[in-house]
Structure formats: C-alpha cells, structure tokens
Design a protein around this nucleic acid. Structure first.
Length: 905
RNA sequence: GCGAGAGUGGCGGAAUUGGCAGACGCACUAGACUUAGGAUCUAGCCCGCUUGACGGCGGAUGGGGGUUCAAGUCCCCCCUCUCGCACCA
C-alpha cells in the first residue's frame, strides 16, 4: 500500500531551525502516542459496576473506496472529546468503532472489475482504520466489528428469525422499483425523482415476490416513543411526518348502476379512507388509483379503451411527472357508479393519477367543496360541487375551514369536529364503515436482488418459505462465478445452483434457499448492541452487559439518517424489547447531528463550442418544476451554458480573486458546495494531518463553529489553530526541549491574573463541554494561553490543569506535555480539573456609565459594590457630569456589576 | 405549497439570554528579529465624519415598525437563504 499519505512519513524535511530549536512537531509525537495507546490498550473497557457508564457512539461509516473525507472526523472528534472528558470525570466509557460493510458500491466495483467485494471491502476497511487511527480517537479497538463478517451477520440472521417468529416478516407481491441498469429492486427511499439515488438510472414499477417487514404494526409506538427522546426536534418531526398518522374514517362504497341499484357480488364495493367523514354528503364522485384492482370491474365496456389507455400512460410516467404540482389534473371516467351510502345517490367513479395506490386503500371519495385537489379535478371535468360547510366561497376554491354544516341531512348545523363523530357513529350503525387511523408509513421492503448482503435464513419447501433453526446459522454467503446481474429480476445467488438446492432437515424434502439478500440497513439496525459484547459466539450479546451499557447515551451522526436508519433501528429495538432481549424500549437516548462541512469550489461556464464564460456575463433563469436553473449568456437567452469547475489547487489567485489557470482573464465564481470529486473541492484529511497534525485537524474541526451547523472548510484557518498548539508547546517547553524554568512548584497566587483566568477557563471549558460547545471552549483555552504567555511565573498546578483541559481536544499534545511535566502514565484517566468559585469572580469590575443609553464613561468598582456607591462614583465622572448639567435626571438605572444608565431630558 | 432553521466586520464565528455588539481565530497593515520567510514576536484592524495628536461625534447585527431606561436578543409586518416534505385523501 502507498505510504504517501502516511502521517509518519515526514513531509517537512527538517530545515535546521535556528539554533536547533526544539519546537512543536506533531509528526514526531502523534505516532508515538498512538502507538502507546494501542500497546497499552489504554481505552479498553469492561463492565465495571463501581463506575457510572457512558455509551457514546458514532454512526459507523460505510468504508468507501474514496477513504475518509473531512466530514467524518467532525462527528468523530466531537464524540472523542466527550469520551475523553467523561473518562476524566470518572465514567466508564464505551466508545467503539466498526464498519457498515455490506453495500452496493463494492458490488458495483465487483461487476466492473471482477474483484470480490470481500477483498475490496477489506482493503477499504484497512484504509479507513488507518486514517481513523491517525486521528488519535480513543476507541476500544478490541470491539471493532464489521457487518459483512459471518460472526456478525450470523446474528443479523438470528434477529430476522425473531421477527419472523413474531409474524413481522412475510412475503408479498409488491410493485417494486425495478432498476434495469442496476439489475435490482430499490427501496422507495433509494429512488429520487424516478431515478436511482446512486447513478441516476431510470426506475420502473414491476410486481415481484418480496420479503416485507411489518413496521406498520409498530407505527403507533414508533410515534409515541419519540416523546421521551432527547433528539433534535427537527429529526423527531421528520420521523412523525414519515410515519404520517392521520385520523379519519374508512367508508365503504358499494358499486351501483346509474339508477342507484347495487351490483351483485361479494367484491362489488371499494373502501376509501377520509379524514373528513363529515363531508360525505358532499361526495359527488369517487376516484380510484389507476393501479386499483377494481378498475376493470367498474369500467363499462364503452369506457374500457379510454381507461386502458390512461392506465398505460400513467404507468409510463415517472413518479416525478405524476407528482408534478404545476401540471393540470388528469383522469378518465370509468362509466361506472358508486353508491353514496348517506345520500343514496349514484356517483360516478373516475380513475385519476392524483390518487396514489400506495397510500391507504388507493381510492377516495371526492368532496370538491371541501378538498382543493378534488375541487380542481371537478372544475376541470365539470363535476358537481356541493357546499357542505358554511364559511367559504366554493366558486373560488374548496373550503377546508370549520363552520356549520349545510346540505348535510342529520349533520346540518354541527361544526366539523362534532359532525365527524356523528358521521362515524352513523357509519358503524349502518355497516358502512368506522372511524380509523391510517399511516403514511408502509411496510418495509426488506429484500434486495444483490449478492453483497446478508443471506436470508430461509428455505422454500414446496414453494413455501420455511425459516431455518438457530443452529443452522450462519447461512454463509456462497462464492459466485460472476457478479454480473442476471439481467432478469433473479438475484445473483440464484445462479449458484449447488447452494440454492438443499433439503429440508425436518422433512427431508428438497428445498431451495432464498436467493434475495437483506438491505444494507439490516446490519446497522443493531450494531450498537453487538459493540456491547462483540466476541460472543453463543449469543448476539450478553444480557447483563446489555443491561449495564444500554441505552446509548449519546449518538452522533449526519442528518441524512434522520428517518430511515434511525427509524429502522428503533423498530428492531422495540421488537427486541418485546422479545425480552433488550432492557430499554429505545436504543438512542440522545441524538446530535453534526452539520455538513462544505468546500469552496470555483466555477465558470461553457457553451457547446467550448467557449468559456465568467459568471459576470451569465444569467440564471429559474425554471418551473426543475431543481436547477438554466444558465445563459446575459442578453442571449438562446445560448445554453454548462457549469464547469476548476479544482481548488489549480485556481490562479490574483488580487484576492480566483482565475482560470489557462485563460488568465476569466474570473471564476467562488461557491460553497458539498464536497465532491466532480467539483474538485474535496479536502483529504490525510493531507491535513501530514501538514499540520491530527491535533490541529481535530481542533480546527471543532473551532470552525457550532457542531450542528453547516460550515465551510477554510484551509488557511487550520494554520491558525496549529499556531495555537505551537504556542501551548512553547509555553511549556524551551528551545532546548526542556521544561521552562518559570514553571514553578509554588501554590498559585489567588491574586495573579493568570490564576483567575485559569479558574474561569476551567469553569467555561467544563460547561461548554457539557453543552457540546466545542468552539467556544477552544477560544476560552486560547485566551488562557494568551494570558499565560504574559506571566513571568507559572504555577505548576495551573500548567498541569491547562494541559488536562486541552487534552480531550489535542490528546497527543496533551500526553506529550504531561509526560514532559514528569508523569509516567497516560493522562486519560487523571481527574478533570476543578475550579474555585471564589476565583471565578473578579474582585473589581468595569461598569459602563450610560446617559440616555449611550456609554459616556466607565468606572472601576468592587464586584459587590452596592447601588449607592456605584451611583456616586458614576455621577462623579467628569464626562458624565458634562452630559448631566443643565438636564433633569428622570431616572437612574443601576444594575450592580453590570451598568449604570441616567435617563435625562 | 407545507414544515423547520438561519441572516452579525473582508471571512469563520462570539455575546453570561434584555445590559459596553464584534470575544477567539483567519485574512490584511505596520514594525521587530532575520542570509531568507508561507517561521516567530509586537502593535493595529466594524464603518463614516472630525482632530496636528490624545481624542471627540455619529452610524451599524437582512429591511421596516413596536415594547423598554436599555433590543443582535422580546412582539408585529416584510425580504433573502438553507434544509426537509411534497397530490398522503
């Protein structure tokens, strides 16, 4: 493997510094301490009932071929700082790292190159591990796990069996997102605007036999469980929206003829869901989704052709086109009728794609007077609109507000809430439906037609799925000849005949193995439980260890997992809780999302002929319904331009402005974008480590701004933080590499400003760490160091405390200085410094004196000076006098220790 | 369209929650030390007016209004940006 990026290789050839000064050299000390931690297993933990536990977890990465980018260490640094801080506060800290190692890219790479995904994955893991370890994180590496390891997926399969036992796993024919280019089915969340999330290939709908997990059974609990979690409100909201609970009623509409007589037959009806059962009197037509099974039966021969044509048309439409809001509503009359149970009227049944087969029953009753979508449809096709709730103007739009019901028989005069109750009772009484709850959440499509995933512990006997027993686990992933998709919907495993063909142990009958594999989410649904007991070969985890460590106290990761990973994990955890296998109903007590780190990119524009344009001459034209605007040459709207990027390192800078390297007068447009190869704005952490060291990278990532915030990477600022670490170094170590002689063993002088600053800093850093305000904690440390630089004597206690305060942020510097202070073992378990509350308060304070709210003078007073003293002193100020003479003092505001304000006129 | 969040110097960002706006850092300017500096140190650095200078005066937290002795912070209206969701009946 290439050693080019190894932080141990010395990029900075020693220019003999003047007089051979011994300076801060991260290249020397960082590998030294990383080796120390690793050899001494400094961060190895076990259950210890004498200490409070703290489980702090990072979302484990998918080890991609690209390696770590600077976004990863942001969250990892934050958790590492807290892990180190908590250890020094006496907590038994569980802080593990592992790999989410099954996944599409390794398999796609295998398809392209024939390299086994296992090899690619192992290589990528090694890179990731090396990079992560070069940053000095205090993980307990003895707990490292990988989801593609049979010792791990053994238990993923085991949990699947638990789900199956409880009736939560089943097979069904579902219209799935079939992606011909990838040769696989994608989950809804992997499809964006009708294209595959990865690669942007076309996706079509196709019915297939699939494994499903009944997550909908847990909808209510997944919703309720959110209440007790210490998570960002926005994430909870996203989950609530995703679950999408809505209360309403199920109403049965029998099919009928134009004259209102019912059609015969068991299946001559359809159900609709409505949140507004109170508006049933205003239901003037019904709409079935084009995919609705009853469409054929409802459609009259005369309308058959038109309906068929419409269904064909919609099936070809992408989801994007179907949900495009700007377009007009479309639909076709089936010619059939439904019986409005409350009015007795025969109302027409239409087919329209604004009704989605995937939500609820795939059919609606249309109340154009009370629903804007129905109103638009009714206007378009001249369907009747009845006003059922007073308060709006149905000539202009549907009225969705509250008000007394009209034209509604027994509901007349009631408000919406009462009318709903009344109607629900009526529906039950007459057998036409009932009040009910519907969720947007759908059952989880749990199989993929892929090779690189967990095999299902299932065989098919006589065409029926049969779970294997726990002793048959793990079902190992077999070797395959080719990773190419079979071209059909058949998964690659189907081609491994020897593996597929098996026998049922209990009956001896021939059986076939399930050839689908589990989705990538499976492994990440429970990895935090395996970390608790990663080597256990007889159980997924030990129950007592689970009781000790769970729940995860703090979970840090990107917002991109706000819904899916976090919802799926919660679902599995609740099931495991019901099985009595875990002791907490929720897995992650506290969640924090780190903000994305952006990179500066530099763009220009190009037309078809290759002519380049600067952003000064380019105009953006927003397009309806499209994400990206159109770029044209200003004044020439016909010339369509393409965005081009110049990689950061190739940009030419003149007068602080970026220019094209080949066209020197072409000024580039600086932008802050998500880091990506195509934009040429990716910052590689290895490069930062080799230039400035891991401690500087860590500190810079924290110093950039609040953790949760999106923020741009600025390479020059890393140097500033690196200088700070060098100043800390120089504060303790002289040019010969010895401890500075002004560091003295004497007790700190409580009057010395550095002592007071130190105590304030202990307080500030401690509070900021508790509140995860790493940026302000670091600036407080910088202020302390600036102050300490001015002192001619530094008490040892202050110096040691300062090193300890800094050590969670810059652990290598921390350990090295700690050692040079004469200590022989790691500072990782030293007691966190404390402060003296008396020394945190200044004895005297500077108080501004305002006249009419403008500061005119400041006075120095004792911190506890009373109002009278302050006022007398304030009045005595010459400057204040000059503003008071000739004026009447209307009011005197004195906030002790804060300010004085004279209100005069 | 709906929901959430955010707008503070040239830049990243601070501001004890209503009390001196701009901490800390970057960039920049000047100086010192240097054979050298993309090293280090010292000082300056929101904007405008004014002063020979010390200084003085005024303005400023997206825009407008309000409450208050006092507003970046609280209230109302508007604008912009970011991120989710998006025909969910």
């Amino acid at each position: 493997m290439s050693q080019n990026n190894n932080p141990e290789s010395d990029a900075h050839e020693q220019k003999p510094g003047r007089g051979e000064r011994v300076r801060y050299r991260p290249q020397d000390i960082e590998p030294k301490w990383q080796r120390y931690w690793s050899e001494h297993k400094t961060f190895k933990v076990e259950v210890d009932h004498t200490k409070p536990k703290y489980y702090i977890l990072d979302m484990f990465p998918y080890p991609s071929a690209a390696g770590l980018h600077v976004g990863h260490p942001e969250g990892y640094t934050a958790t590492d700082i807290l892990a180190r801080y908590k250890r020094m506060r006496g907590f038994n800290v569980l802080h593990p790292m592992g790999w989410d190692a099954f996944g599409l890219p390794a398999e796609q790479y295998a398809i392209e190159t024939g390299t086994h995904p296992r090899e690619t994955t192992a290589r990528n893991i090694n890179t990731f591990r090396r990079q992560i370890q070069s940053l000095g994180f205090s993980y307990d590496w003895d707990r490292e796990i990988s989801t593609c390891d049979p010792d791990y997926y053994h238990w993923t399969q085991w949990i699947f069996l638990k789900l199956y036992e409880r009736g939560l796993a089943y097979m069904a024919d579902v219209p799935v997102n079939w992606c011909p280019a990838l040769g696989t089915v994608l989950a809804n969340e992997e499809v964006i605007d009708g294209k595959s999330e990865r690669g942007g290939h076309d996706v079509v709908r196709k019915p297939m036999r699939q494994w499903m997990l009944r997550i909908t059974t847990y909808a209510e609990r997944l919703l309720a469980g959110l209440e007790q979690l210490d998570w960002p409100e926005s994430v909870k909201d996203m989950q609530r929206h995703w679950i999408g609970r809505s209360e309403g009623a199920r109403i049965r509409f029998p099919l009928c003829r134009a004259d209102g007589t019912l059609l015969p037959g068991e299946d001559s009806f359809f159900d609709v869901f409505t949140t507004r059962p109170d508006t049933l009197f205003g239901a003037t037509y019904c709409v079935l989704a084009p995919e609705h099974p009853l469409v054929d039966r409802v459609t009259t021969p005369a309308q058959h052709e038109a309906v068929e044509a419409y269904r064909q048309e919609t099936s070809r439409k992408s989801d994007l086109a179907r949900t495009d809001l700007v377009k007009e509503k479309t639909g076709v009359n089936t010619g059939g009728y439904a019986f409005n149970p409350v009015t007795g009227a025969a109302i027409p049944v239409w087919v329209a794609d604004y009704v989605l087969i995937t939500y609820s029953t795939g059919a609606i009753m249309a109340v154009p007077g009370g629903d804007q979508r129905d109103w638009e449809f009714a206007k378009r096709f001249n369907l009747p609109i009845i006003d059922v709730v007073q308060g709006g103007d149905i000539d202009k739009e549907a009225y969705v507000g509250d008000g007394p019901h009209i034209h509604s028989g027994f509901l007349n005069g009631l408000n919406v809430a009462d009318a709903k109750k009344r109607m629900n009772a009526w529906l039950v009484e007459h057998g036409y439906g009932e009040g009910t709850v519907t969720y947007k959440l759908r059952d989880w499509l749990f199989s993929r037609q892929r090779y690189w995933g967990e095999p299902f512990p299932v065989i098919h006997v006589d065409g029926k799925p049969q779970p294997l027993g726990p002793n048959d686990l793990p079902v190992l992933l077999p070797e395959v000849e080719s990773f190419l998709p079979t071209g059909t919907a058949e998964p690659p495993l189907a081609a491994v005949t020897q593996w597929v063909e098996t026998t049922d142990r209990t009956t001896g009958k021939p059986a076939k193995r399930e050839t689908n594999t589990m989705p990538q989410w499976a492994g990440s649904c429970w990895y935090f439980l395996r970390f608790i007991d990663p080597k256990n070969s007889s159980h997924p985890w030990d129950a007592e260890k689970e009781r000790y460590w769970m729940p995860v106290d703090l979970y840090v990761g990107g917002v991109e997992h706000a819904v899916l990973h976090l919802l799926y994990s919660r679902f599995w955890h609740q099931v495991l809780y019901d099985c009595g296998l875990v002791s907490t109903p929720e897995p992650f007590q506290r969640l924090v999302n780190q903000g994305m780190i952006l990179g500066f990119s530099y763009r220009y524009y190009e037309d078809e002929t290759g002519k380049r344009y600067s952003y000064h001459t380019v105009e953006k034209i927003a397009q309806d319904g499209a994400e990206e605007p159109l770029y044209v040459v200003a004044g020439q709207p016909t010339v369509n331009l393409t965005i081009r990027y110049i990689p950061v390192e190739k940009v030419e800078w003149r007068d602080e402005k970026p220019y094209h390297p080949e066209e020197s007068n072409l000024e580039l447009e600086p932008q802050q974008d998500k880091m990506s190869k195509s934009r040429g704005n990716v910052v590689n952490p290895d490069a930062v480590v080799s230039e400035y060291g891991a401690d500087a990278l860590r500190c810079y990532e924290m110093f950039m701004g609040p953790l949760e915030q999106v923020k741009p990477w600025n390479s020059r600022s890393v140097a500033g933080v690196s200088r700070f670490l060098a100043r800390v170094w120089a504060l303790l170590i002289d040019d010969n590499g010895d401890l500075r002689s002004h560091i003295v063993a004497e007790a700190p002088d409580p009057q010395a400003s550095v002592t007071r600053r130190y105590h304030k800093t202990v307080k500030k850093v401690t509070e900021d760490l508790e509140g995860m305000r790493f940026n302000t904690a670091l600036s407080a440390l910088m202020e302390l160091v600036n102050e300490a630089q001015k002192a001619d004597r530094l008490p040892r206690a202050v110096v040691e405390g300062t090193v300890m305060l800094l050590s969670p942020f810059a652990p290598h510097v921390g350990e090295e200085l700690w050692e040079r202070l004469g200590h022989t073992k790691t500072l990782a378990y030293e007691s966190w410094p404390t402060y003296d509350p008396m020394l945190v308060r200044d004895e005297t304070v500077t108080v501004p004196v305002q006249v009419n709210g403008k500061v005119r003078a400041t006075i120095e007073v004792a911190a506890d000076a009373d109002q009278a003293v302050i006022l007398t002193l304030a009045r005595a100020q010459e400057k204040v006098q000059s503003y008071l003479t000739g004026k009447t003092v209307r009011r005197e505001v004195v906030v002790p220790g804060r300010l004085v304000n004279f209100v005069v006129s």
